[in-house]
Every structure is written in C-alpha cells, then in structure tokens.
Amino acid sequence: MTGLRRLAPGFALLLAVGALGELVGAATPLNSLVVTIALGIALANVAGVPASCKPGVATHDLWLEVGIVLMGARIALDSVLAAGVPLLASVVGVVAFTLVVAEGFSRRWFGLQRRLGSLLAAGASVCGVSAVVAVAGTVRADEDQIAYATSAILLFDALTLFAYPAVGRLLGLSGQVFGIWAGLSMFSTGPVAAAGFAYSDAAGQWATLTKLTRNVLLGVVVVAYSVVYTESDSSATATTLGGTLRRLWRGFPKFVVGFVSVILLASSGALSAAEIDALTRASHWLFLAAFAGLGLDIDAADLHRTGVRPVTLLFVTLVVVSAVSLVGVQFLF
C-alpha cells in the first residue's frame, strides 16, 4: 500500500489533466489528446510538477503501453494482413535508410563523436529515447553523450507531434497514409500515437501499428552495433555477448505481444461489440493519462541545453527521411 500511496498523487494529476483535455476537446474543434499534451507542457513549465506527484507522473509510459494493448481490440486483422508485406518492407527499408543517413551525416558533415552519432542514429531510426538507452551500453557511450542524444530526441518528439498533423492536413493525406508516414519517420512511440490520433482515429491506429512494427527491430539494431563496436574497439570483452542479450531483453517492447494477442482475440469473434467498445473507451482514457504525462515530462530548460550539432543532425535526418518515406508510402498505399 505504501507504493500505491506514493504513486496516487501523480496518477491523480495525470487523470485530472487528461479529463480537462477531454472537456476542452469536447467543447472545441481541438483534439483532446493534443490539448492534454499542451496542458501538461504548460503546467510543467509554468507552475512545475509537485515533488509528491513525480513518482506517479513517471508511470505514464506504462499507461501508454496498456492503452496500446487495449487499442488492439479495434484493429481490423484483415486490414493489417492486406498491408503486411508492403508495411514490413517499408519499416525495414526506412530503419536501414535512417541509420545510413544519420551515421553518414554525423561523421562527414557534423564531425560528431562516433558514439554520440551512433546514439542519435539509433534513436532516429527505431524508437527514440528507448533506442538511445538500449544502444548506449553496446557502444559504451558516456553519460554526457547519452544526455545530449536524449535531449535532442525529446526536442523533436515535442516538435513533431504538433508539426506532423499540420503538414498532413496541408498535403491532404489520407488517414492510412498519414499514419504509416508518421509511424515510419517520427522518433518515439508516444508522440507517434499522439500525432496519429490528432489527425484521425484511422491515422492513430495505423501510426501505432507501424511504429510498433518498427520498435521490434530494436534488437536487430542493438546486435548490429554490438558487432560493429566489438570489431573496432579493442576494449571489448568476452562478456559483450551476454550483456548484449540482456539489453536486448530489457529493450524489447514486450507489450507488443499483448497488442497482437488482443487483435487476434477481437478478430476471432471472442469479444462482443459491447466488450470491444468498453476496451476502446478504456484505451482512450489510458491515452489521456499517458499523454498528460508526456506533456508533464517535457522540460523546456532541459531542451534548451541541447547541443546545436546533435539537433541539426536530427533535423537534417528527419527532413530527408520524412520526404523519402512519404513518397514511398504514397506509392505503396
């Protein structure tokens, strides 16, 4: 009970911000999830998050994962299967292309330290901060390099979750095209889902599905960096493989298994329409809590301290990858 009491104030704050975002969204043309993030950012950077609330606010990633699992109830399996091969090929191609672009630019144009460039490339190509943390041990990055990479990724998470829907509407993209595009080219899972649902419900589903498919490739990226850095770094030890396997397991997005399971369960007819509707409502409220936490976690002061070169590298990489992936998605879908 002590642990629950410690988390309760922060969780109550997440629900309060989420409920206010829902009310504003219902009363205006604005999307409630985006309003919730904006309210969280404003509260965190104007009034600050009370110390008593911080442990509970830190659970927002968990609510995002549970919300994604429950969202599987409204994903049509036949649509997923129809997009299967083109979607998988797009994910693999964009991840590989992003790695090549970011690694190449970091060395030839920006002169970044090799390990910092690898952290930024991993974060941009797979799953944002989670990829930075997973790859950091493999490339033996120091704390400053991890801090720079994390701050730069978070900056673009904050910017793209608002910019992408605006660009999508300007270009008149369909929900499916926008969702797959966002899932392929944005950095972190939370902002991808937020941007998708800000655009439309269909876009949110496709964005989340695409991003989860991309997240699964984290293991491949960690192994690839492990091989590259083991061959080039004489300080590598015989325990590198064991450490890599542990990082793979810790970094693997295990909630993806639950997401796929719920899709299969709903598609099999085991869930009634009322049960699917209840899971959908629960997923929406969990997203509200998660996105409130996402906003509350954005500290403008931390983002201001981000180095110029890492930010510029990510900006150039994002522009190139976004443009190429959008052309590909429009051609395939």
Rank of each mutant, 00 (worst) to 15 (best):
M1G: 15
R6D: 08
A16I: 06
G21Q: 00
P29V: 11
T36I: 09
I37F: 14
A42C: 12
G48A: 00
V49R: 06
P50N: 09
P50C: 02
P55C: 04
P55D: 04
I68R: 11
M71G: 11
A76Q: 11
A76M: 01
A83P: 00
L87T: 07
S90L: 13
A96K: 05
F97T: 15
V100C: 12
G104T: 15
L112S: 08
Q113R: 15
A121K: 06
S130P: 00
A134Y: 01
G137W: 09
R140D: 04
S151P: 09
L159K: 06
L161C: 05
A163D: 04
Y164V: 08
G172R: 02
L173H: 02
L173V: 12
W181S: 10
A182R: 01
A198S: 10
A207L: 10
A207R: 01
L209F: 13
T210V: 02
K211Y: 06
G219E: 03
Y229T: 10
Y229I: 03
E231F: 13
S234C: 07
G242Q: 05
R250A: 08
F259T: 04
L265P: 05
A289I: 05
G293E: 09
A300F: 15
A301E: 13
P310Y: 06
P310D: 09
F315L: 15
L318Q: 14
L326H: 00
G328N: 03
F331P: 00
